[in-house]
Structures are given as C-alpha cells and as structure tokens.
Design a protein around this nucleic acid. Structure first.
Length: 996
DNA sequence: GCTCTGCCGAGAGGA
C-alpha cells in the first residue's frame, strides 16, 4: 500500500542527476520492482510533471492505479512518459544556463506593479502563483529592473491578471522573492504560438501587426503572387525539376484566378512570365553551384516552440553530414532587416532540435543560415541585427495585443501614428502614411468620433478575437505532450502507428481507429514530443479501421524515417474563419454608409414588403410564391424562414432566374453551396454559373453538369484557358457565382466584384461577420434559414447568433415557408408544437408517409446505468441494434432508408461498430443536419436531460429528419420534469390510437 | 453544463 502523495514528494529528489540518471532513479524508486511500462495509455490516476531544472529537463511521469482509489492504491504503474525540452533556447551550441538560476516553467499573475521610473531606472514587479516546477503551488514575488533587463521589466505593462507566463533565469533574493538578472526573460502565455513573420515585422513597432489583425488576411497584390509563384518554382526545382518553363506551365493555373482578380486589361502577362522565369533561372544557377541542396532537403518545414511560443515555416533545411544549412528565399528587390530577423528566429526555432542532434551524435554541427535572393541568385549570410530579448519582447507584445483586442476595455492604450517619436522616426514615409490611414479608419486617434460603423466593427472584432483566442488553445494542447490521451478520447488522434509501406504516400497500421479523421483532413505525425523532435505535416488520403494513408509532400522522406518507433497521428487544428471574419468586418467598415448598411445596423425600417405573389410557377405553394415575390422585389433584404422540409431549395432557383443582374450564391459549407447549385440546375439545366473551387471537390455537382464541367469551376477554368485575360473575362461575365462565405470574404475576385443580389442559404448557421462576407458583395440580399435549427458552431457565445436570427427578431421583411413535405404529420406535430408555435402545415398526408409497421412515433424506454455523465451507452446501443435488425428483417426496411443519430460522438462510434454490416447511416445530429431518412432512431444516451442533450435546436434537428417513423430510444425518466415531458404522453396517445 | 463542427497554403512583397 502506498500513498500517491508520498510518491509525488519523492519526485523532486534528484536535482543533480543527468536526464538518463534522473529517469532511471525515478523509475527505480517509484516502481518498487513492479514496473509495467506496457500499461501505457490506460486510465491515468495522476499525472505529475517534475522539472529538474538543474539538469535542464522536465521529466514527465504518469502514475497509474490498476485498482484502488486516489489515496490508497494497491499497485502503481509508473512510466517515463517522455522528456520534454523546456530549456531556455540557446543560439550557440554548448552555451548553457547557469546552475544557480531559477526557472518558473509556469505561473499565473496574481498582482502586477506596473513599471515606475525611480531615479532613472524602471522598476516593476509581479506577484504570481507558481503552478508547476519545484516552487509549484507557492506564491512568489518577482522584482524586475530595467538596468538589469529592460525587456523583462517593461513587458509587465502588457500583462494582465491571471495571465500565464514562464520565467527563465531569475535569481533568488529570499525564500519567496526572485529578482531579474541580465539573462532573465519572460514568456507570456508560452503555449500560444505567434508567427515568426509577425514577430520579425514587429521588432520596432507592433502597430502594423495590430492593423493587420484588424484588416484580416493581407491584401493580395501582383508582387505577392509573383513571390508565391517563385517560391513554388524553387520547391519544384529542389524536388529535381530542371525544366523551368514546364514547371511554370504547371504552376501557373493555380495563380490565374487571383492574378485575373488583381490585374486589369493592361496587364502584360508575357512580362510577368519572363520575370518569374528570370528569378527561377537565378535560383537554378544557385542550386547548380550547391548540388548538395538536391539531397537531404526538407522543404516548407514547420516548427513550433513550446518554450518561446513562436512558430515558423522554414523554406528549406538541408542536412549533410555535420553541416546544417537553413535557407530562406526572398523574391523582393531588397533584403530587409526584418528578413534577417526572420532567419534569426528560424535559427532560434531549430535550436532545440539542433541541440538534440548534437547530444545524440556527440559531434558538433556546423550551422549556416542564408537569405537567398532570387533577383540575382546571390545570398546573404545571417546578419544578426537583433537579439533574443528583442525578438521575445516583440512576441510578448503581440500576445498582449491579441489579448487586449478580445477585451472590452483594453488595458493597453490604442496606438496611433506619432505615439512614440523614437519608434516612428525609423519608419519610412509610406509606412507612416498607411499607419495614419489605418488609425483614421479604425478610430484610434484620441477624440475620434464614435460612429455606428466603429461600434459594430469593434464589437465583432472583439468577439472574433475571443473566438480565436480559444481556438488557439487547440494548438497549445497539441504542443502539450501530456495531453495525447485526452486527444485520443476526443477522437482527434490515433497512437501506435506502424509504418508499412515504403514511399509517399505513407501507409501506417494501427490497432484501433480512435479518431474521426476523414479524407483530406490536415494532420501532423509525431512521436509524442512535438516541441522537441521532428514532426511531419500532411493530409489524410485514405483511412480505415486498421490503417491510414498519409501524404507528406515536399519533405523527401523515406520509410526508414518512420521505422524503429511507433508514431501518433493528430488532427491539426486550424481556425481560418477568424481571418475571414476580420476581412469581412474590415470591408464592411470601409464601405460607405448606404441603405444596406443602415438596415444591418437596424437603423432604418424598410418599407412593408410588397404583398403580391408570383403566379407563373406551377407546383409551388402560396408561402413559397410569396417568398419568391418578396425576395425578388425587396428594396434591401428579405428573410425566408424555412423549417425542415418546407422546400427552400425550390425557392432559390426561382429567385435566381427572376433577378436582373449578377447573383452571388453562398453558404457556410461547400456541401450547402453545391446543393444550391444542383437545385438551380434542376430548375434550368442550361444555367451558366461559376463555382469557386474545383470540380474534383464537388463530384456530385460536377456530375450533373451537361457541358464541360471545367467551364463551371474557377480552378478548372483557369487550367483550361491557361491565360489571365480569358480567366478574367470568364470571372467577370458569368452572371451566377457561388462560393462559401469564407471564400467570399477573402478572395480578391469576390472582394472586388459586385452583384445585384446575394442569396445566402443556411443563414442561421453563419456568424454575423461571415454573413457580411457574402452580402457585402451585392446591392440587395436574401437570407434563407431556420433559427430553430443548429446555430453557428463557435466557442464564444456572443458570436453564436446569426444575422438571420437578429434581423428576424424585428423585421417585417420575413416570409415563413409554412408547409412541410417531409414528415408524417404526427412526427411534424412534435416539432410544430415545441418549436414553431403550431404555424406549420403538412403538405403530405398520413397515408403518404405511412410507416412500414406500427406507429409513426415510438418511445422505447431503456433502463440503464449510464446515468448522468456518460458519453456512450451500451444498453441503448444494444437496443438500437436490435431495432435496426428487426426493421430490416421483419419490417422489410432497406438499410439505407434508416438513420441513427445521437448527440454524442462516442455513442456514434459504438453504434457504427455494431451496425457496420447494415448500411444504416449513423452520425451525430450536427452532421445529419440537412439529411433525411424514412426511419430515424434517436439514441439520447443520458438519463437526465442536460442543457446539451436538451438543446432545443439540436433536438429539433434530430426529430425532423424522419419521414415515416421516429423512434426515441431513451431512459424512461429522461423527459420527466422538462418541457418535453408531454412527448411521452403524446407518443402513448398515438400508440393507443394506432392499435385501436 | 462543458458538448458539437465548419472553414482549409502561411507570409508571399511594397516604398
């Protein structure tokens, strides 16, 4: 019998051991001879991280109890889970931190004393709660002085309460007192990753990056496009391509759409081509004189540092024997200081990796790093124009900036040009001009007048930043090597991958698919130590229950890279909606005040909608005809409220065909965009449209196009026509254009073209900023959606309201499509009573939707233990399985006419395993939205209705997928004492009526 | 009460 607490205390007992010794000692001491390392990744009891900061390593130990409780366990299994390099990064090999320096791997701010100038020296201090390390759980006082370390002292002004930080190289001044020394540095929110380029551009001033965040995705210009193209050419050459013209020909189509969007009729395409090829030729000469570049190259290498919170993408890294060559390609006219800074940061990012190599191989690596200019093929060796503290200071300020943008009241003062003469003096005039313009637009200047535009912009910018702040946590979790189990539990990762095939794309085998990874998902393959060892980015080509095929481009990898140890595949988190949202908000802010803007602000009441009906279309009901008429004739906007099965897809093509002028069709998902277009084609197969994207990504839609599909998709069109002028013509002349909200917000083509009308489908699932991205492009807009179904999926609550929902609240320009054609009237009645206040009518009779047997609505009670917190329920799954099989066998129902949904993914996984052979569709409610089946079975899992299970909108979606029969499988007490209690009584009534 | 998922090149160069 052993107390876990007693064991934990022992973990700090090896201050001077080497890593290997520390690990061994630890294991020996803790295991007591009963070590079971193979019990990895089972229920953890305790997770302890113990920093041995004198030996410079953090040893992570997991204690597990096979049986027993927390206080007393019968047996403890200890595994050395990994060694995490959390060392201060060093640029020079062999330079080490002094042994008497204190490191706080993680601490939280409790109280701040902002920098004060005392006798010419700035002083500040932090009271902090240390949350890990040997000082863990204690309060410390850190005193910082600018004469010892200015960057560390001044960053205190940017901190906030509860902010987390790491502190390196502090000096003890008392039991709970630490002071700064020249080597001290702080890392604010160390898990948060800031781009190397953003940091290198903020060394003098963070204002340009501040503006850039609020502007969203940077502007695309002819120069940036040429830069990208030359970079791609360089990659191709390093992969062995020698025919430059051929390579150019292959790459160009991918650039034609943006090229056509940013250029005008005077654009000289031949000159552009000649220029790009001239750059490529100098690069070719460079490669020829450095033949080693063709081997052992890693291109577009992404590195993350959990120590200093900076990420970067290195153009090329070459390793030959004990020589390491970092190459950063620049295509601009001049190499700038910030380019050197960027290279410096890349070197910093690689320092952990390099140190590990040196340690493993016992030999010194010779490191060279160069900026290669493609203008003339010359290179410039790194000129250290910056230092580590300056880089870190800029990085910390950017984190503070992001944080303050997400706050209502910013503690950091808004900056405008002229803020600091010392800083602004070094700026060139065009930068100053741009800085000034941004300050004016964003209202940064003191005394700037408050306008509705600015109020709206600030409110949503803040919400988008909040969302991004939370989404960034996913990346931080990925970099936290101790959270792998959690990611496996959340279906994000699979561990224990073994390589089976020899070449790209690589095939790995595993025992169990613990993820919901799908084809095309962006993934990272790693060993569990992302921050300190090699990781590989790629995407999933195929995935099954035992193996996965991953494509890892541009890395020149061989199978032997993956031999010798098991790997982990992790879904790589990304949040691209934040950038798109910022861009849309910026465009909206910059747009002149007009009727549309006033309507969005709720400043004007549009005149009452015209009450006519379009009478010419046969087969449409009255509400549909009215919706079409009002949309076509609206002054600024019209809202169409379309509950499930009410035929909104029939309404859209009618509006499209009646609008005189350009029409932009959009939705949040690619699937929904394709659906709109398929409806348009069904209505009129001869409609010409332009879908932003490629046919291969929309196979279902492409299959329905009568002519050459390449004429209908922007990317295929570019490949087909092959020149800028033809593509520009096609982009400008097609009347009907369709894109996702994300693309409409960011693509230069759509940011500049204007339409007569924008039609947005599933508008209740779009956040306001993303809705803006679509409707900004048109004079008038129609939003179609149902706010009684699922809202936008975001973490920030205040952002989870759609513009559709807001405008619907107090607008008269609204038409309800009131007749549904999907559900048996008795199934509809449940949804109608609960969510639509009885306004729905049924366009189909009970006879037309007669279930194959029994009642249309059935409640199957399952008494089970799972109770309150489980995310899966084997009892319910067993019952669902029996039901499905009896429906197929005895009821004669086809497998593909049945659908099973559950609120929980874990239950979906369980059900899928059981129903694999039946052809039944099993999914979460979210993913089933938009779908329908004759028979729907709903497995609710919990015995008590939580806000999650009983979310009105989720429940509504679940119920309204069924055409003929809805089976609710749930604990008998689930609905009790909730507003849904009557469902059971209603079900009983129907059953009695049915048998009677 | 803490779950669900969609979007998808990140830094390309400028004066």
């Amino acid at each position: 019998m052993a107390s876990v607490h007693a064991l934990i205390e022992q973990l700090t007992e090896f201050p001077n051991a080497s890593v290997a010794e520390a690990g061994e000692n630890l294991l020996r001491s803790l295991s007591g001879g009963s070590l079971h390392t193979e019990e990895f990744l089972t229920d953890p009891l305790v997770l302890v991280r113990t920093p041995f900061f004198n030996s410079r390593y953090v040893v992570q130990v997991t204690l597990r109890a096979l049986k027993g409780d927390y206080e007393t366990v019968d047996e403890i299994v200890v595994s050395l889970n990994g060694l995490i390099d959390r060392n201060p990064p060093v640029l020079e090999p062999r330079r080490q931190a002094a042994a008497d320096r204190v490191v706080l791997p993680e601490a939280k701010v409790l109280e701040l004393s902002l920098p004060k100038n005392i006798g010419g020296v700035w002083e500040s201090s932090i009271t902090a709660l240390v949350t890990s390390g040997p000082l863990g759980d204690s309060e410390v006082e850190i005193r910082l002085r600018s004469d010892r370390n200015a960057a560390a002292c001044m960053i205190v002004a940017y901190l906030w309460n509860h902010c987390s930080f790491a502190a390196y190289n502090l000096v003890r001044a008392g039991e709970r007192e630490l002071v700064s020394c020249p080597e001290t540095f702080l890392v604010v929110e160390p898990a948060r990753q800031i781009n190397a380029t953003s940091v290198s551009r903020s060394l003098y001033c963070t204002k340009p990056q501040f503006d850039q965040i609020r502007r969203g995705r940077g502007d695309v210009t002819i120069h940036t496009l040429k830069g990208q193209l030359v970079h791609s050419l360089f990659d191709r050459m390093l992969e062995g391509e020698t025919d430059l013209e051929a390579a150019y020909g292959k790459l160009l189509p991918g650039f034609l759409v943006p090229l056509a969007s940013v250029t005008d009729a005077f654009f000289d395409e031949d000159a552009f081509r000649a220029d790009a090829l001239r750059h490529a030729a100098s690069l070719k000469a460079f490669i020829e004189s450095n033949p080693h570049l063709l081997q052992h190259a890693q291109l577009e290498l992404r590195r993350y540092s959990a120590t200093i919170g900076i990420q970067g993408r290195i153009d090329a890294l070459f390793r030959q024997g004990n020589r390491l060559d970092i190459l950063e390609l620049k295509t601009g006219a001049r190499i700038r200081d910030e380019d050197h800074a960027q290279l410096f940061i890349y070197k910093l990012l690689l320092s952990d990796l390099i140190r590990r190599w040196q340690r493993d191989e016992g030999s010194e690596l010779e490191i060279t790093s160069r900026l290669l200019s493609s203008v003339d093929g010359t290179f410039a060796p790194l000129r250290v124009a910056s230092d580590f503290y300056r880089v870190l200071d800029a990085r910390n300020k950017l984190v503070a900036l992001q944080h303050s943008l997400a706050q209502k009241e910013s503690h950091a003062p808004a900056r405008y040009e002229g803020f600091d003469a010392g800083v602004c003096g070094s700026c060139v005039s065009w930068t100053k001009k741009r800085c000034k313009e941004a300050s004016n637009l964003f209202g940064d200047r003191p005394g700037a007048s408050e306008t509705p535009d600015l109020e709206y912009f600030r409110r949503f910018t803040r919400l988008v930043q909040q969302e991004r702040w939370q989404a960034d946590q996913d990346v931080a979790d990925l970099l936290d090597d101790s959270r792998i189990e959690q990611r496996i539990r959340n279906f994000r990762a699979i561990a224990g991958l073994r390589i089976v095939s020899g070449a790209e794309p690589f095939t790995f085998e595993f025992d169990e698919n613990t993820s919901d990874l799908e084809r095309g998902d962006s993934v990272v393959i790693h060993t569990g130590r992302i921050s300190s060892s090699s990781t590989y980015h790629g995407y999933v080509k195929t995935i099954g229950s035992r193996r996965v095929q991953v494509s890892i481009p541009l890395k020149h990898l061989e199978a032997k890279t993956f031999e010798a140890q098991p790997w982990i595949i992790d879904r790589f988190p990304s949040d691209v909606t934040a950038e798109a949202s910022h861009t849309a908000l910026y465009d909206f802010l910059a747009a002149p005040m007009d009727a549309k803007k006033r309507a969005i602000f709720g400043m004007s009441t549009p005149s009452a909608p015209s009450t006519g009906e379009e009478r010419t279309t046969p087969g449409l009901n009255a509400s549909q005809r009215q919706a079409i008429h009002r949309s076509v004739h609206c002054e600024v906007f019209h809202l169409i409220w379309g509950p499930p099965g009410t035929g909104k897809t029939r309404v859209i093509p009618e509006i499209v065909s009646r609008i005189d002028g350009g029409v932009l069709l959009g939705a949040f998902t690619n699937t929904a965009v394709d659906k709109m277009l398929m409806a348009v084609l069904e209505h009129d197969p001869a409609t010409r449209f332009l879908r932003v994207g490629r046919a291969s990504d929309s196979p279902e839609l492409a299959a329905r196009i009568a002519g050459d599909a390449a004429d209908y998709f922007s990317e295929d069109l570019a490949a087909k026509y092959g020149n800028v002028t033809a593509v520009r013509e096609a982009l400008r002349n097609t009347r009907v254009v369709a894109a996702t909200a994300h693309r409409a917000s960011t693509l230069p083509f759509l940011r500049t073209r204007s339409f007569e009308m924008a039609i947005v489908d599933e508008a209740a699932q779009l956040t306001e900023p993303l809705t803006l991205g679509l409707i900004l492009r048109a004079r008038r807009f129609v939003l179609i959606g149902d706010d009684k179904q699922l809202p936008p999926v975001v973490r920030t609550r205040a952002l989870a309201h759609s513009m559709f929902e807001r405008l619907k609240r107090d607008s008269e320009s609204l038409t309800l499509l009131d007749t549904q054609y999907r559900m048996h009237p008795e199934i509809m009645e449940v949804s109608n009573r609960l969510f639509y206040a009885g306004k729905l009518k049924s366009g189909v009779g009970a006879e037309e939707r007669k279930p194959f047997d029994g009642a249309p609505l059935v409640f199957v009670p399952v008494q089970h233990e799972v109770a309150r917190e489980g995310r899966s329920n084997p009892e319910e799954a067993r019952v669902v399985n029996e039901l499905v099989r009896s429906f197929i066998k005895e009821g004669g129902a086809a497998g593909d006419s049945i659908g099973v949904v559950s609120p929980f993914r874990a239950q979906v996984v369980l059900l899928r395993q059981m129903l694999e052979d039946t052809g039944v569709a099993v999914d979460t409610i979210e993913r089933f939205q938009g779908g329908e089946r004759d028979v729907m079975i709903l497995s609710l899992v919990r015995s008590q209705g939580t806000g999650f299970v009983f979310d009105d909108r989720r429940l509504n979606v679940a119920i309204t997928r069924a055409r003929r029969k809805l089976v609710l499988v749930a604990h008998p007490e689930l609905f009790e004492s909730s507003r849904y209690a009557w469902i059971r009584a209603y079900t009983e009534t129907l059953k009695t009526a049915d048998t009677a």
